[in-house]
């Protein structure tokens, strides 16, 4: 069952200026974005910087003003922000940031930081509270003496795990993780990603996993949406996206990933250059006159692609023949 469904989400930021601070223009950060996240799955949102990934994640939490579209959670319409300020939603949906350090209050001890959501949402005795915090520290692999330390006394990877401990404190059903490992070194990144998988297996958490790193996305996600300029151009399973990409933007993005296969780097480079050339030749076909992506068309049971009308028709016919 779908846990969260986002339909035609729009977030436009006004650009103000001039003497009266009038609205001169707008930035369409998110334009008609639709997807749904299933129970227990990791849904990836990948794209280049400025494509609208963070804005999408923040809008779901009600942290950005929503221009249009609907959001439903466990089958209930929660489009009105007031509905998302409701205890249930705020407890169930948590966030992990790229830079946990700046989101952790530097003046508070770890015990207080991690217990904050528990104090907000659950009525626990002092003793139970401490037990729960100790459990959480254990889950993210920190020793009990962390309780009385301050955030700056931890390394980047540890701070990120503290951020995770706080996010999972209330047994959330969905965690929006916005570039959770982008600031971390390889070995620490591995540690945090393993943790995220482990607690998912343990608690059945769903993730909206936002990243620009296609290697990390492939490792973590069951289904993936490719975003560019505020729009999703392709959605599919990991193998749909990595083995059978269809949209030209997806293809050139995948070609650009640096690979460690040193024996084939010349071939890889040539393939990438050829892809680039094709991209510049053909990309206009994939967008309408206004530069907007075409509507998503279903090309298989799990795979949706934004395709120009003629291509869309071709894929529809192909798909019908398969059945």
């Amino acid at each position: 069952m779908s846990l969260l469904t986002v339909k035609d989400l729009q977030v436009y930021f006004p650009v103000r200026g001039g003497f009266f601070n009038r609205k001169l223009d707008e930035i369409q950060a998110v334009r008609d974005v639709s997807f749904s996240i299933n129970q227990g799955e990791t849904f990836g949102l990948v794209g280049e910087s400025g494509s609208g990934k963070s804005t999408t994640g923040r809008a779901i939490l009600g942290l950005e003003p929503q221009t249009g579209g609907t959001i439903s959670y466990q089958g209930h319409d929660v489009t009105k922000v007031a509905k998302r300020q409701h205890q249930d939603f705020r407890r169930d949906v948590q966030m992990i940031f790229q830079d946990s350090f700046s989101s952790l209050n530097p003046q508070k001890r770890i015990a207080s930081i991690i217990s904050e959501p528990l104090r907000n949402f659950e009525n626990l005795s002092k003793n139970d509270l401490k037990l729960r915090v100790l459990q959480l520290l254990d889950i993210v692999g920190l020793s009990p003496d962390a309780l009385y330390k301050y955030p700056h006394q931890f390394s980047g990877g540890q701070q990120q795990r503290i951020g995770i401990a706080r996010a999972v404190a209330t047994h959330p059903k969905l965690i929006i993780a916005d570039e959770p490992v982008s600031a971390l070194d390889l070995s620490v990144q591995a540690q945090v990603l393993n943790f995220m998988k482990k607690i998912q297996a343990e608690f059945g958490i769903s993730y909206l996993f936002i990243s620009h790193d296609l290697g990390v996305i492939r490792h973590m996600c069951d289904r993936i949406a490719i975003m560019t300029r505020g729009e999703i151009v392709e959605i599919g399973t990991r193998s749909d996206i990595y083995q059978h990409p269809i949209h030209i933007y997806t293809k050139q993005l995948l070609e650009a990933i640096p690979q460690t296969d040193v024996d084939h780097r010349e071939q890889h480079r040539e393939a990438r250059l050829a892809m680039n050339q094709k991209y510049h030749q053909d990309k206009h076909q994939y967008y309408d006159q206004q530069g907007r992506a075409f509507p998503l068309v279903q090309v298989s049971e799990t795979h949706w692609v934004s395709l120009p009308p003629n291509e869309a028709l071709r894929h529809k016919i192909l798909q019908r023949e398969e059945h």
Binding site: L186, Q259, R265
Partner: peptide, 8 residues
């Protein structure tokens, strides 16, 4: 710090 970049 990126091994992929090195390999390429």
């Amino acid at each position: 710090h990126d091994l992929g970049v090195v390999a390429e």
